[in-house]
Design a protein around this nucleic acid. Structure first.
Lengths: 156, 156
DNA sequence: TTTTTTGCAAAACCTTTGCAGTTGG
DNA sequence: CCAACTGCAAAGGTTTTGCAAAAAA
């Protein structure tokens, strides 16, 4: 239930800068870590550990255990963030640009990624009514997309 | 990712009426199912399959596979609903009284269950801005509770 | 009796952990 | 060289599936 404590968002705009953060933390920049950074920069959206392991550059997929360990490290360093979009594995993405927030359709699985400020009005309202400081970065805003909301329930 | 299609919420107010729904659907009212219904009615809040299996009335815990199969059946019949409150197992509760919606604190795990109408203002706003029909019955509204929001990040 | 349901065992899925060997600095 | 890191293998927690035996109608 509890979320991993993540450092304040790191500032980096390319692979070299991300690598520098790793080195700067005292951790080693191994081949596996470089490969994982490549995979993260190559991904267009949040990707599973499995998918990142396969796209690391090398022909053979990287070891999943190491991928998870390194994603955890990167998350502590503020390079990566992970999100749970419904059921299925957690998805990891670079923690750039203030982060995205997510809306997911429970019925069809459609994922909409939005800029945090678009949700500020809603954030204000939840804060007023419940004292909750809402964020949809780790668990998304969940509901029915426009299309699914129009179809009657039970329809798949 | 996709959510099980659930029938329109069934109307029942005690174990006998829930049992009648099971029978009425053509399914058999076995001892295991009666025990699971008892466990559901005895639970004060959403409970894991594991916990329900242990509290079915009998001394020995019910078989988990059967519990999951029956919870799925009950969900199709509109007797039960399940919710994912953060990490950890799914939690199951009777689908009575229009259902509750949930706010969960990402940091401390605090769960706040609220009446759906308390969220109508927020629902309206999300519908206007994104066309999304939001509901926090299956995946909760996630954020920081008042107390945690005041503590600086990284503090566990 | 016949069809449904159970209980057990096994597997599937995602993630974590232990450990001996390898590698980065 | 030595601590940090990897790869493999195994286990952990949750949920699903296959199947023969048991129970409901």
């Amino acid at each position: 239930m509890t979320v991993a404590p993540h450092a304040t968002a790191a500032a980096f705009s390319d692979l070299e800068e991300a690598a520098a953060i790793v080195r700067g933390s005292g951790a080693r920049l191994s081949a596996a870590r470089r490969g994982l950074l490549e995979a993260l920069f190559a991904a267009e959206g949040p990707a599973s550990a499995e998918r990142l392991a396969r796209s690391g550059g090398q022909a053979e997929a990287a070891d999943l255990a190491s991928v998870y360990r390194n994603l955890e490290l990167f998350e502590e360093l503020g390079i990566v963030r992970h999100v749970h979009l419904g059921h299925g594995p957690g998805l990891y993405a670079l923690a750039r640009g203030g982060g995205r927030e997510y809306l997911v359709c429970e019925r069809c699985g459609e994922v909409r990624s939005v800029d945090p400020q678009q949700l500020d009005e809603i954030r204000d309202q939840v804060r007023e009514n419940f004292g909750f400081e809402v964020r949809f970065t780790h668990f998304p805003l969940s509901g029915l997309c426009e299309r699914c909301a129009r179809r009657p329930p039970g329809g798949r």
